[in-house]
């Protein structure tokens, strides 16, 4: 059902998501100014920027949680404004904060959000068990969400996003708060998902995530895109011959 819905949405565009001249004003504050972005299909795109740069707002606009004050947004090649509900159901989101009802078990939380997105539990059961095992979550699956550690809750949120987002994942700090083993495993899973054709928009301050996963990089600052390109291009532009970390720091510092 989800795949059918996705096929209907997909266009021949090489971009999974496009923002054209998008601006956003919230309470008279200009959050985004004339943002133009093209997120390529089948790649990991890192959305970077110092705090307050407009990353979360950009993500919320793509998810149609916020409406742009001006400009146009296309996801899966379709105009977001006219296809918001259908598009939302095909994007897997890992929000910045660990989300879940503490009275319900980890598994019940997962089942709830899957049902809410019209995903039949039976269709993804095998995939779910495999991921729970890989992320060492089998033992806590029936534990109350409120009693999970921060890392366990994060990993659970990641699984949820992967199961919902059949073609497009938006991951906000996917490895923050995770132990090393789980962080490594999550990076592997992201890579596998991309290899299978999914597109990923990721916001992260963990340099290992960026070094291992990011293929394209968008740098936002004060609500404007200051640089957008593949990783090599960004690295060469800001820190020729240097580390990616140095390039990002320089990009953040640049006026």
């Amino acid at each position: 059902m989800i795949l059918e819905s996705y096929k209907q949405l997909m266009s021949t565009s090489e971009y999974i998501c496009e923002l054209r001249n998008v601006s956003k004003v919230i309470n008279t504050t200009q959050i985004l100014s004339d943002v133009n972005l093209n997120i390529r299909k089948g790649r990991v795109t890192a959305l970077l920027g110092p705090n307050g740069a407009g990353k979360t707002t950009t993500i919320r606009i793509i998810l149609s949680l916020l409406r742009p004050s001006s400009g146009e947004v296309f996801v899966f090649g379709k105009e977001l404004k006219k296809n918001a509900t259908q598009i939302r159901g095909n994007i897997g989101l890992l929000p910045q904060r660990n989300a879940g009802y503490k009275q319900l078990t980890a598994l019940d939380n997962l089942k709830f959000i899957l049902k809410l997105n019209n995903i039949d539990f039976k269709d993804i059961e095998d995939e779910l068990i495999a991921m729970l095992e890989r992320l060492n979550l089998m033992e806590v699956a029936n534990k109350q969400f409120g009693k999970l550690s921060g890392g366990e809750a994060r990993a659970l949120g990641f699984i949820r996003a992967v199961l919902i987002g059949k073609q497009f994942l938006i991951l906000d700090e996917p490895t923050t708060g995770l132990d090393i083993a789980r962080a490594v495993e999550i990076r592997k899973i992201i890579q596998e998902e991309v290899n299978s054709g999914k597109s990923v928009l990721m916001s992260s301050h963990v340099i290992t995530d960026l070094e291992e996963l990011a293929q394209d990089i968008i740098i936002l600052k004060k609500g404007r895109v200051i640089k957008f390109g593949d990783r090599e291009e960004i690295q060469t532009h800001f820190s020729p011959g240097g580390k990616l970390e140095d390039a990002i720091v320089k990009a953040f510092m640049e006026d």
């Binding site: 998810l63 949680l65 939302r88 989101l93 929000p95 989300a99 809410l116 997105n117």
Partner: peptide, 9 residues
């Protein structure tokens, strides 16, 4: 959960 609920169908 607001963000997740609002980003669902």
């Amino acid at each position: 959960m607001m963000e997740l609920l609002l980003s669902s169908v």
